[in-house]
Amino acid sequence: MSIIVNKRTKVLVQGITGSEGTFHSKQMIEYGTNIVSGVTPGKGGTKALDGKVDVFNSVLDAKEATDANASIIFVPPAYAGSAIIESAEAGIETIVCISEGIPTRDMIKAKHIVDERNICLIGPNCPGIITVDECKLGIMPGFITQKGNIGVISKSGTLTYEAIYQLVQNNLGQTTALGIGGDPIIGTDMKDAVKLFEEDKETDGIVIIGEIGGTMEIESAMWIKDNVRKPVVGFIAGQTAPAGKRMGHAGAIISGGDETARAKMDIMEKCGINVCESPSEIGKKMKEII
């Protein structure tokens, strides 16, 4: 068991012929991901990745021909919102959007369409998802993971790697790790992912890593308090961030009192989450409580 992706996941890559799409498709295949097709409008009928993968003009064509049930998106931000909608309308069940810099307006629309159809969207602007030794639908370095019983959820890419690294240092492996992205509008949010890990039989502990901006961590914490029995370790990045300044991620900006790191950490603590003051304590803390 694991969440969202596993060895049965059949993947199509949107934007497979672009440089990012090509590079990461190779990496995903190397990890063991089952990539069945690619989509690049105008390049249907050709082959990608040294002739190994068929390319189609549309997601619908690719899905019908290759029975894909998941897609990963590497298209430029101006078109990425439409790419999500195209996948959703073609009936893809799991969509991971790596693209960074999508206009918020486009994401409001895409999010609405995805939710209406009950589709699992991860991202955008995220590292994707990895179920250890089964399926990597993303751009994270697979070799840092280790099979185990911890679920990892993070708003940030490299901070996810840091958490995985620390878990492994403490000899704790992972079931699934996912980066949900730091944009104002995202698909699967922290609470959704926590819920899936709580239901997953192989996961015994959950790490949640948030950051300044928005109130998603607070909503997750409230939900965890009433619904989660597994131990949860949490960290919030941006304790030193000034208000009103965007810290890289489009969503990482403090615009209200409850969007600060301190406010989020206090509420998480009250909800029974084991909050790390320092980012270097994530692995250690999980080791102590599990």
């Binding site: 940030s156 490299t158 980012p279």
Partner: peptide, 8 residues
């Protein structure tokens, strides 16, 4: 590298 790790 990365906004989250930079804040951390």
């Amino acid at each position: 590298n990365g906004a989250g790790l930079a804040m951390a």
